[in-house]
Computed example of a mutant assay.
Amino acid sequence: MFASTKSRLTRAALIATTLALSAAVAGCGSGQAGTGGEGAGNTEGLPATVNLLSVRDETGVTAYAGLGAVRGSEVAVNEINSSGFLGQVELVMDRRDAAGTAQTAASLASEGIASKKYSAILGPILAVESRAIAPIAEKSQVPVVFTQSNSEGVLIGDFTFRATAPFPKYYDVMGQQLQKKGITSIGVLFDAQTASYVETATKVIPEWEQKYGIRVVASKEVQSNTQDFTASISSLLAEKPSAVAAYLLGAQHGTFLKQLRQAGFTGPVIAANGAGNGNLAGAGADGVGVSWPTAFDPSAPEASTQDFVKSYRQMFPDKAPNIYEAEGYDAVWWIARALKAANSADPVAVQKGLVEVAATGFDGAQGALRFEGNDLRATPKIVQWDGAAEVASP
């Protein structure tokens, strides 16, 4: 079951939420969560309803990723409820829109925690938002499972988890692929407001010269609202790189690639997960062949991956699942397994359940999931855009 503040809360529910929030704020000086309210108040045995709070970008520049995570989570909730995985318990996910701002994300998380309604939070995809929520979750002892948020400062304690394998930790596979193609130099263009892109551009790729003989000959910063890349492209190409790395957001990819090809560059272009979700469609033929590493390939043969793809297609027949959907799905199944292990909806018990599940791992949309502490690790797969879809890179 899903609820959105935009369309699905009744007047009665709004009044009830307001009253619960007021009461909780008045009495939550200890910072403890989960001691009252529907779903999160029982310390032993699961209640009839368990509530999760989704705080993700449903509008704004990164809505493509936030909504993807929401859709994946919805598929998981539907599976869990229809299969009876938690017995007669109904799992409910309430949706809130962080709208791409850290302040909004933190406020929504604080309100949800104060209501003492939620057993866990499904956190946002932007690291800047996740870093704002993380200390709130730790202080209140309510577990939050992030997706994306690929940078340091997100997992800061026992109550912060991540269902994404941070791509800077496996991005070297792109260097290996470029080395096999005989690439010896690269120009890098990156969004300076996205922490994981900054880390990849300034720390990971510069190490490729020593590892793979690929030297960074030019590096340019842009902003998340940049639409004219001609000056940056001119500066990059002046150094004659044999490949280009572009770390951008959403529709920026199409604009950049068109301008890059118009400037005469014909070499390989590598990217990150932001190139997925159909964001290269706007580039037309200029986007064909752009490649990036990911923890999810919908064509992978693993049974758990194909089960997810089938379930996703049943709920969203007009959309193809990608990494954001897969991570949102795995995050909810991680929590569901934690609820079952803990036999409690109390947030502190759920945190212990999350740790227990992570210790053994499980099979999910991204394949066999293994964890390093509270953080997912994955075997990367390289995909590329063929003009219509993401496909395995040869």
Rank of each mutant, 00 (worst) to 15 (best):
T266I: 11
T62P: 00
A272D: 05
A263Q: 10
D318I: 08
S119V: 05
A12T: 02
S299I: 00
I335V: 10
G41Q: 09
K203E: 05
K310H: 10
L236E: 08
I382P: 03
Y118F: 11
P321L: 02
P301N: 12
G274N: 07
S130R: 08
S224G: 04
K340T: 10
G387M: 04
G153L: 03
G41T: 07
A163D: 06
R215S: 03
T49M: 09
P135Y: 06
A285R: 15
L369I: 12
V154L: 00
D297Y: 15
I113G: 00
D172R: 15
A300M: 04
A24N: 14
P241A: 06
E58W: 14
P47V: 03
Y64P: 00
P317H: 12
Q227H: 06
P317M: 05
L91S: 13
T10C: 13
I15W: 04
F167S: 11
G31E: 01
R11Q: 11
A26G: 05
A359F: 12
K169Y: 03
E209S: 14
E302N: 15
A303D: 06
S82Q: 12
R96Q: 09
G60S: 09
R8C: 01
A24H: 06
V128A: 15
G289Y: 02
G45K: 15
K116C: 13
T35V: 10
L126N: 09
A48M: 02
E111R: 15
G328M: 01
S235Q: 02
A102F: 11
A127M: 09
V288D: 02
E44I: 00
S291Y: 13
V188E: 04
G278L: 00
D94L: 14
D172Y: 06
G34A: 08
V350Y: 13
E302S: 14
N78P: 07
I214E: 00
G373D: 00
R370L: 01
N81S: 09
L189C: 07
A275F: 06
E138C: 03
L257R: 06
L189Y: 01
Y64C: 01
S219E: 03
L52E: 02
Y118M: 09
M1V: 04
S119W: 01
I133A: 12
Q306T: 04
D172G: 12
R377T: 14
K352R: 15
K180H: 04
F159N: 13
D172Q: 13
V55F: 06
A24C: 04
A109E: 02
V25K: 12
S73T: 00
Q306C: 02
V204Y: 12
V128S: 14
A3M: 10
A201R: 12
A281H: 13
Q314S: 11
